[in-house]
């Protein structure tokens, strides 16, 4: 019991820490692990040069939600000695390494135009991450498996996928009409 409590406490603490870092960021952003493995600091661009400043990666956590264009992450517009660049990064497209985000992998691709981050894509991300406080006190999923088995016994109600019954009846009727 105490252990469980401590685990929940730890999770709440971690979550609070997240919230802290995330600060004023938009709600739809995905939560990234505070573990900086998933940050751009380890990005290994294949042919294009690495971003100029790798020590303090910009928080990249924009999820491209359909129907909504992702707003580019604001980048501090520090003046650079190179006049051709407005921002601190060199133009190009950079792909970060696959990082373990505890519940799944995160891989980010960032596009730099005119020295600024113009687009951030998630090539991989844990699609099951919940941004709300409704995080289970359990740290790891404890799923179980079995082969489905028919059950006997009366029930008051049946839960099944929507429209199944009508569609089934339609399909059956149609099949039966062919059987005539």
């Amino acid at each position: 019991m105490i252990k469980k409590f401590l685990v929940s406490l730890a999770i709440v603490a971690v979550f609070a820490f997240y919230s802290d870092i995330k600060g004023s960021e938009k709600q739809e952003t995905a939560i990234l692990p505070k573990n900086n493995k998933s940050s751009l600091s380890q990005s290994t661009p294949s042919s294009t040069p690495a971003p100029a400043d790798t020590s303090t990666p910009a928080p990249v956590s924009i999820v491209n939600i359909p129907g909504q264009s992702a707003s580019p992450t604001p980048v501090p517009s520090t003046p650079t000695p190179t006049p051709s660049h407005q921002g601190q990064y060199k133009d190009g497209t950079y792909t970060g390494p696959v990082a373990d985000a505890f519940y799944g992998n995160v891989q980010i691709q960032v596009k730099i135009s005119n020295g600024l981050i113009s687009d951030v894509q998630f090539l991989q991300y844990p699609n099951d991450r919940n941004t709300s406080i409704m995080i289970n006190s359990q740290a790891m999923p404890m799923l179980q498996q079995e082969a489905i088995q028919s059950q006997t016994g009366n029930v008051d109600i049946i839960s099944g996928a929507t429209d199944t019954s009508n569609a089934f009846i339609q399909s059956l009727t149609s099949a039966l009409s062919q059987a005539k």
């Binding site: 489905i148 088995q149 028919s150 059950q151 016994g153 009366n154 029930v155 008051d156 109600i157 049946i158 839960s159 099944g160 996928a161 199944t164 019954s165 089934f168």
Partner: peptide
Amino acid sequence: SKNKNWSVGIRNPFNRFENIKI
């Protein structure tokens, strides 16, 4: 229902006449 919790079947997705859980 009648001082007992309601019983709810989960329909077998492969056979609508069967429940796979109660």
